[in-house]
Structures are given as C-alpha cells and as structure tokens.
Design a binder for these strands. Structure first.
Lengths: 329, 329
DNA sequence: TTGTATGCGTTATCAT
DNA sequence: ATGATAACGCATACAA
C-alpha cells in the first residue's frame, strides 16, 4: 500500500517494514543497523520494488553524481571517441553523464555551462574554444585542449611535440620540402602549438616549409587553390604535408588523388588526432595520435578531485606517431 | 544577503525584492503578476544572480526535462550520429540528455534503464537488442530498431525494403551472382529483415545468391575464409555483395583489395547504414542510407507525446540508396 | 541502536 | 493579484 499514486517512498517502506523512516534511510545507505531491522527493511524494499528518488536525494545532499560533458559535436569521430572514454571513466566511478553539444557556438557553450549549474551537476568537462567562456563559481570545470588560466585546470595532449614529431617523421621518410595546412579559428591556440612545433622541427632539421592557414569560415576550395598554385610541371613544390587534423588530411588526400598526385609516392601526408575508421579499424591517414583514453581518465579524475592542490593547472599528455597509409613508413 | 553559504534561493530573492516567495515563483515561471512586482523580482534575480534549482523543482513537480538515451557505444559512427540528431531534437524542445553506453551488454542495458528510473527522467530512448529487457512501468520508453511488443513503441527504418533495394541496385548495376554477408547476434531480428528483403529481391529478379551469416563472436577471418572458398581461377563466384552494415562492407572491401579483386570492376559491394567519413564527407561505400535524422525526430516526438493514442507501435521509415564508390552507378 | 523532527528549494493550494 | 503555508522524498541532528 502506497501513498498517493506515485512510486513507493521511504515512508511506504518504513510502514511496510514496521520500522521508522530513519532506519530505512540507514539501511538504504549502508549505515549499520540491527540485523533484524535490516532484514525487515530489505524485504520491504524488495516487495515494494523501492528505488530512491535521486531528486530528493540531490536536493538534500547537494550531490548529484552527474557530470556535464560539453563538446562541439558527436559527428566528428574524435569528439565521439573522447566522450566514449570519458563515459567509461565516469561509469566506473558511479557517475552519470549529462551531454551537451555546442557546435562550437560560444553562445551554446555558455548556455550549456549555465544549464549545468542549474542542474546542480557535480562537475563539468568542457571542450570549448570560446575565449570569453564564463566558468561557474561553484562547480569544478576541467577544460580540454584550451587553457583558460590557472584557475581552470586544462587537459591536453602535447600539441607542440606533435607538430615537431610530424616534421621529423616526414623528413625521416625522405621529404625535403614540407607544407603545413591548417583550418580553424585563430582564437584556438592549441592548434597553433602544432604549427609552432612543426616550424621548430623544420628549422631544427634545416628543411624548408610553406604554410597555408585559414579560418573556420574559409571554404575548402581555398586549399585546392593553394595546391594548384604549388603544382608545376606535373609535380608539387613539396613532398611532405602536415595537416592540422586527420579530417583535413583526409580531404587533402582526396584532392591530391584528383590531381593525380600519388600518395605516398609523390607526396606524403600526416594528420593529427589518430582517429580510426569505425573507431577501431585503420587510421584514416598517417597521423599524430592523441592519447584519448588517458586524456579522458585525467579529466574525470581531476573533475572529481576535491583537493584543489592535486589539480595541476595544465596536464600535457604525450602523443605518438602512427603509420596509416599516407606515408612510406 | 543570502541564507547560509550556498547559492541564492527564491527565499533570498523574495527578501531582496521585498515580496512573497510565491510571487517570485510566479515571475520565474512566467505566470502573470503585477508589473511593479515583476520588475522588483527581476531586479533582485539579476542582482543575486539567481538560478532555479532543478533538483528542488524536479522533486516538487516530478518533471525533470531530461531524457535518457541508451546506445551500445559512441565509437561506431552510426550510433554517434543518431545520438547527435536526438540531442538536437531534444535541445530544440528544451530537454537535456542523459547518456548511457551499454556496449550491447544486456546487464548494462538493464542497469541503464534502472538508473534512468531512479533519476526520474521524463523518458527513455533505447537502442538495445536485449530480448529480456524489462521496461519501466512509469517512464515512457521508445525503442530503436527492436520491436519489443505493442506496449513499447519502436522506431526503425525499412530494413526489409533496404535489403530488397540492395539486391535491386546490384542487379541494376549488372551483377548476376549475389552474396549476402552478415555478422551479429541472431537475436536481433531487424538485420534479419535486411536479409529477408534481400532474398526476396533476388528471388523476384531471378538472380542466384549465396549467404554467409555468423554471430557476434565469430572472428572476421571467417569471412576471409568464405571469400577464399569462393575464389576460383582468379575470380570470385559472385559479382555483387550486400553487407549487413557499412562497417562490415568496409572490411570486406579491404580484404578484396588484398585478394587483388577489383572493386567495383570485378565485384560490387553495398553496405547498410549510410554513414559518412567524419560525419559529413564521403560515404564509406555504396550503401542503403538509414534516415537517421527522421528517426531521431520520431523518437523524440514519441517519447514526449503524452497521448498514448498518438504513439503507433511501430514506425518504419524509408531508406534510400547512395552511391559510394563500391558500385558502378 | 532506533525513532522523531526539521529543512533542502520549489510548486501549488488557499485565504486574503 | 498577492502572500502564507503545506507538501515533494530524503538525510541527519538530536532525542529517546
């Protein structure tokens, strides 16, 4: 017999078991209680199919065991994979995930953060490039890939080292003239590090390089134009290309094929991210692999960490090179 | 001035504005109230940076504006895309998304449903093949791609028609000997419909066909063996292959390349799902495209629909064919 | 060790 | 139209 028509409450369980409300609460939360009481309560719980109401619990204890995860979208396999691993880490610790897609729109990003606060989540893991993003005051926020200042811990991969590694691998594969291609908001400084690392690598190795850098709203055709301009006498001016993401690399390889430039024979291409086809098959291209799994683990660990002293301002995880068919080795 | 050290509450706003608690609630919820009161409240809200506490709200109103979405994983781009569109539809209606990944493990699926109930979500959209899945009694659940019976509305694409369309397209492209390849749990009857439709298509057109059907735990090598067995005198016994998913088609094409069988010259391949590289670029292969966007819209619309009469037991959405480089046309 | 009573922040009912 | 007050379901301090 229950109160009203809703689900059974602790009150119902207490009545059914013939004990007091507080006793039920204790049993449910694993707080020691006399054995006979415990048994009676457990029997009643089972009989009524009682489940605690997380909303009442959250209201009372102001702990919701929910983490908000904010990413641009799930359509890009890099973000999807990231969310996948974050989910796994959260689930392992008994946390649930509230998802937010923003399409990289600063307004949506801010909105998502507001929503998270209002939803009383226990923390936020956010992949945003919005420089003006206002972090909440009372809920811990971990940023992925963007450093907002010492107050907000950031987890990223070694973008600089990755850029340099790309240059090194191309040269090691026999390239003598390199190019760097990048698309994306100029606000995002992490991809800039990829460029800086690449430049550093080229200069360290004494290899000449060209660059083509455009913003998010530039049509892809701009790259086709760039490639055409550097195409003379049946061959390209460069024999190695580093693209800022696998996605761009994939497109570039397509364009090169149309131009009858052979990959990797005539020109070798390296991307960045290390995403695989269908998640676990081949790499789309030779690439600098981000340690997605470790990044996810770091994010979760840090967002749940109460001790601020244990939260470094910036965690930078190592990348590695993977061959994917667009380089010789 | 606030009570305690937490966030400001309606009480604080009421005190600040010099009005009663109920008045604040009305203003916040857009219920008409005298203009001067409204202004005072709004000023106080802004001044204190007040935000309603969704947990208190949810407790009281038992409406949380959260939908739980349960999928096997996000690593497979088909699921990721589905979640993406569901998210968009939910957000458009002011709903939030609690995400659940299950890895297709029946235990995790059940757990996810329990969690959703406990979390007092307003509804569940679930992609599960667990035949024994126990649906909750009080929270509406929409199933994707699996029909659990009339009590649980199901949204799926026209798998049968898709299978037939695949056969038709292969034949239209000049194929005269077809094969059907499938991997997956024998419990899942929707992919079986793809097979049935394919068989129906072949028989209607009077074209011979072979089939290779294995369960989830069979290593991929089994397909390689199958192809080898049907490889005589430098060519395959069939010139058209229908794979139950794009993912499988992608692998098969790889194997064919290794065997020096040319695609689409020697054999043409059609997959199923219609997922694109990086979400919006080329199709992985020629394919039967699921109307993911419409499916997402249907799911959301139905899960939020209060009127049971408006919830058909089974919604079946049309598929279409898309060329993706593994067929001639 | 068990039971009782209060309050978490809202909504909604009911007098005013 | 506005303001006081009682739930919502649970946790917990406190009393027994």
């Amino acid at each position: 017999m229950q109160t009203g028509n809703g689900n059974p409450t602790m009150k119902d369980v207490a009545r059914e078991a013939g004990v007091a409300l507080g006793t039920v609460s204790k049993v449910v939360n694993g707080i020691p209680v006399g054995e006979p009481y415990k048994e009676k309560v457990e029997a009643a719980v089972k009989k009524l199919n009682y489940r605690v109401n997380n909303y009442a619990k959250g209201l009372k204890s102001s702990q919701t065991y929910i983490i908000q995860v904010i990413v641009p979208n799930l359509v890009n396999p890099f973000f999807a994979t990231l969310v996948h691993y974050i989910y796994r880490e959260l689930a392992r610790r008994g946390y649930k995930m509230l998802l937010g897609e923003t399409d990289s729109d600063p307004e949506m990003e801010q909105e998502s953060v507001f929503l998270a606060e209002q939803q009383k989540v226990d923390g936020i893991i956010c992949l945003s490039y919005n420089p003006k993003l206002q972090a909440p005051e009372k809920v811990p926020l971990i940023s992925i890939d963007r450093y907002f200042g010492a107050r907000i811990p950031c987890v990223s991969c070694d973008n600089y080292g990755g850029g340099r590694l790309a240059a090194e691998m191309l040269v090691e594969n026999g390239c003598r003239n390199l190019a760097f291609l990048r698309i994306g908001s100029s606000l995002t400084n992490e991809p800039n590090k990829r460029k800086d690392g690449f430049v550093n690598g080229c200069e360290g190795l004494g290899v000449p390089y060209t660059m083509k850098i455009v913003d998010d709203y530039t049509p892809y055709a701009e790259f086709e134009k760039f490639l055409q301009e550097h195409y003379h006498g049946g061959k390209l001016d460069f024999d190695g290309i580093f693209c800022v993401t696998d996605s761009l690399a994939y497109q570039i390889v397509g364009t090169l094929k149309e131009m009858k430039v052979r990959v990797p024979e005539d020109v070798q291409v390296i991307g960045f991210d290390g995403i695989r086809q269908f998640g676990d098959m081949d790499y789309f291209c030779s690439t600098i692999v981000q340690p997605v799994e470790e990044m996810a683990e770091q994010c979760v660990q840090m967002v749940l960490e109460k001790d601020a002293a244990k939260k470094p301002a910036l965690v930078c995880l190592p990348v590695r090179y993977a061959k994917g068919g667009t380089t010789r080795v």
